[in-house]
Nucleic acid binder design. Structure first.
Length: 711
DNA sequence: GACCTGCTGCGGGTTG
């Protein structure tokens, strides 16, 4: 049966009015499943395949007769921008059917929020953090608001699977369920995902069979791609010819140029605009990243979306998720992404229009990046992406949620609290003794307080301090920043860890500035225009590379594959890297230990987690690791023979705890609330997030180590 | 050698 006839009369009329030709394949599959079954559903398909409508046409059909009276659907988005975007899309579909739609996030004004609280109905579009704020600040209303909810729609659900933010969200959904007459169905909208089992249990561990995953048939778009290498100089500066080539490439097309850091975005934007100016073209390249003022960013998004001229945006992963910037013809990636899924997501931003193809240009500017880019691209072509693994033992989020739950209940006994957590979808599996240990720790440190003859728990004084801070609602870490202003105009932000002085020249938002003054108390930096400047530095986490990427890099070193999509300079560099490997006829299951006088270089080419664990194991045997990188390449200077130690590592019975003494401060796990946990629970988090003993042993057993002496 | 994401309520005043 044509899914059209499954929809309500008003939805059918709406589709007529919008002059839709036909449903997309994903819509044809999803509509009957929502209407005819009671299942949770994950809709996995590329951008612009009509996922939102696939979910909302049938949902509106099911709820339209009663949606005027109470809240039926909670739509959750990781981005405020996406809420604003989708608001218009959903409003369009539900125009004439009296289903109210409400937006709720940090930028929505109080009046609108008040109105919703007074008469909650229809659809609520909200962020995880704003759900948290409802539990904390609107406690007396939540029962009334949530009781009739029938659907949770989670947009970009893949972005929640492996993150602390996802743990928080899933906990919040559990807490909402406690107030619902019936358990709401979960509909997830996702880019391509792997590891179906994991996403099923993320949605409903009690009944994974009831989660249907609907994957759209792959698109028939042709992918055009190539890689160009421009070796940087000794001071790691990108050569001018690289920028000239990039200018040439983007002169006639609308493109996104992805860089790996905010500083590179700034540098690239300024350089490209200088080249464009030489051709008497006006501003053509726009910078986009999180430390550029929001208004400026929105201006850039609009300019790119509405421009018919070939303008381009230079961005970090800030433009990776679904923010609408119109049709993009070309995606450029400067140096390798850290994950395959990131490259896939970025490339999906081009060729969205019907009958257009996808164009991807990779640039590399150093040898590692070349090798890594090839590895990532090859894995993408093999259709591999990093599988979801979740966020293990989330005691840090448990800490935050306990504060929030105590606030929600305004007095709860320890037994009730534990029962509540045991019924929570993300905490149920944590041992009761450990939950109790955390609660008692929180009482001891005044995060919680016992009242009513020590029977009931409320938020303690130090808990209040955390709870009343506006920083409470999000669970991810952020760094402190200065606000940069030019007169009354906000330009963006600078990382406080980066030491600046008056008179320094910086690039921000693609423009050059001189720092005129720093007002520490207000956290403000005052700037005026300059003619010459350097990009600022921002500080982030280290990178964790999946084993599969490192292994692929090693495989490429061993092979003599020419890769038809790379230029001559890239092939020359690659052959240069391969020389020693080819000369010694190294095979892909082998790993080389290069010996040079008193130094040993072991090129492990394995994942970052395994590499670090290996380093700690080596240190425990007294081997001094001088340097190591995220691909497991390490340098050792030691009289102890490394080979023997590696052998011993595979034979020993390891306990994770014994590696802790050999871990440097900066190598420990860290998250927003991790420092507030009892030591024992914190170490559990560290162990499960950072240590992989079985991984190291399996890695060492699967490889054959070849010792080569270099002189 | 990184990147991204988010965020009180209330009362009292002014403005459209």
């Amino acid at each position: 049966m044509n899914p059209f006839y499954l929809l309500s009369k008003s939805m059918q009329k709406k589709i007529w009015d919008m002059k839709w030709g036909r449903f997309t394949p994903i819509q044809e599959m999803v509509i009957p499943t929502i209407i005819h079954t009671n299942k949770d559903i994950v809709i996995s398909s590329g951008t612009a395949s009509g996922k939102t409508e696939a979910a909302f046409l049938p949902i509106l059909t099911l709820i339209e007769s009663t949606a005027g009276q109470s809240l039926k659907v909670i739509y959750i988005s990781p981005l405020k921008a996406l809420i604003n975007n989708q608001f218009e899309r959903i409003e369009k579909v539900s125009e004439h059917i009296h289903v109210p739609i409400h937006r709720w996030h940090g930028d929505v004004d109080q009046g609108k929020k008040k109105k919703f609280i007074q008469s909650p109905a229809g659809i609520l579009q909200i962020t995880p953090e704003s759900i948290e704020s409802l539990f904390v600040n609107r406690t007396e209303h939540i029962k009334r608001i949530f009781s009739d909810v029938e659907f949770f729609v989670i947009d970009e659900i893949h972005s929640f699977l492996d993150t602390e933010r996802g743990v928080q969200l899933r906990s919040l959904l559990s807490r909402i369920e406690n107030y619902c007459k019936n358990r709401p169905r979960i509909i997830g909208l996702s880019a391509t995902i792997d590891n179906f089992d994991f996403i099923r249990s993320w949605i409903n561990y009690c009944n994974t069979d009831n989660v249907e995953i609907i994957v759209s048939p792959g698109n028939d778009k042709e992918l055009n791609y190539s890689l160009m290498h421009f070796q940087n100089d000794e001071s790691f500066k990108k050569p001018v010819v690289f920028f000239e080539d990039l200018r040439e490439l983007t002169r006639e097309s609308k493109s996104i140029i992805f860089c790996n850091s905010r500083g590179e975005v700034e540098e690239t934007t300024v350089f490209l605009n200088r080249l464009a100016k030489r051709e008497n073209v006006g501003e053509t390249y726009y910078a986009h990243h999180s430390s550029i003022d929001k208004q400026e960013r929105e201006y850039v998004e609009r300019t790119i979306a509405n421009s018919s001229a070939p303008k381009s945006v230079v961005a970090t992963s800030s433009l990776e998720l679904g923010i609408d910037i119109g049709e993009i013809e070309l995606v450029v990636q400067v140096d390798s992404t850290f994950t395959v899924s990131s490259l896939k997501q970025r490339l999906g931003r081009s060729g969205r229009k019907k009958d257009t193809n996808q164009y991807l240009q990779l640039y590399t500017t150093n040898q590692d990046s070349l090798l890594q880019s090839l590895a990532v691209m090859e894995l993408l072509l093999e259709k591999w992406v990093e599988p979801s693994v979740g966020y293990p033992v989330p005691y840090d989020i448990l800490f935050q949620q306990i504060v929030s739950i105590c606030q929600e209940h305004n007095g709860i006994t320890e037994i009730e609290l534990i029962n509540n957590l045991k019924g929570n979808h993300v905490f149920y599996f944590l041992p009761t003794e450990e939950i109790r240990m955390l609660i008692h720790h929180m009482i001891n440190y005044d995060f919680l307080e016992l009242i009513n003859g020590s029977k009931e728990l409320i938020v303690g004084l130090d808990g209040e301090r955390i709870l009343r801070d506006k920083d409470f609602y999000s669970v991810f870490m952020t760094s402190e920043e200065y606000e940069v202003v030019n007169g009354a105009k906000k330009i963006g932000q600078l990382d406080k860890k980066w030491l600046i002085n008056e008179g320094d020249n910086i690039i921000l938002a693609g423009k050059l500035w001189t720092i005129q003054g720093i007002e520490e108390s207000k956290g403000k930096v005052y700037v005026t225009a300059a003619v010459n400047a350097n990009p600022p530095r921002y500080f982030g986490d280290g990178s964790k590379i999946h084993s599969k990427i490192s292994e692929k890099m090693h495989e490429i070193l061993c092979s003599d594959e020419k890769f038809r999509y790379i230029n001559k300079e890239a092939l020359n560099e690659l052959n240069d890297l391969r020389k020693a490997y080819h000369l010694n006829n190294i095979k892909s299951q082998q790993r080389v230990l290069w010996k040079q006088r008193d130094s040993y270089y072991f090129e492990g080419y394995t994942g970052t987690k395994i590499a670090r664990t290996l380093v700690w194991m080596l240190r425990s045997f007294g081997v001094q690791v001088k340097k190591y990188d995220e691909f497991g390449r390490l340098e050792v200077t030691s009289s102890i023979y490394l080979l023997g130690t590696l052998e011993q590592i595979t034979q020993k019975e390891w306990r994770e705890e014994e590696l802790i003494a050999f871990t440097r401060e900066e190598e420990f796990f860290q998250s927003k609330y991790s420092a507030l946990l009892p030591q024992e629970l914190y170490m559990k988090m560290h162990i499960l997030h950072e240590i992989d003993i079985n991984g190291v042993v399996a890695f060492l057993k699967n490889i054959q180590i070849i010792v080569i002496t270099m002189d």
